[in-house]
Amino acid sequence: MHEFSVISSIVELVKGEMGKHDNLNFVKEIVLEVGELSFLSHDALRFGFRALVENEPDIKDDALTIIPIQAKVKCRRCDYEGAMKAGETEEYHIAIPQFSCPECNGPIDVLHGKECVVRNLVLDLEDE
């Protein structure tokens, strides 16, 4: 439900970057990394993006590339650092992350997986 405000911030960030290039033709690609533990729906982000750039001729409407980022955790008990274990049962259609250590079942801290990072932009510029 909050994807629109997030994607609005992203478009503002991109516009700010566009303003630094006088020879800009258009924004070809925006690479966005979205953590699997964030509550950002990729489809809703794409939908919001297309709606927002409809009247922005300098941003291609298919410019948004979303890269899912796997969660990474650290165990408070055994210092395990790595992926979460995922419980797949018949009850679930998707893999559900388990919030305990895959090695010792101890309590964990989430290191990665909640982020929403604009990693880079690919700009098409006029060669001056």
Partner: peptide
């Protein structure tokens, strides 16, 4: 055309 990658 020139394609430039901007790290953010």
């Amino acid at each position: 055309h020139l394609v430039q990658d901007v790290e953010l």
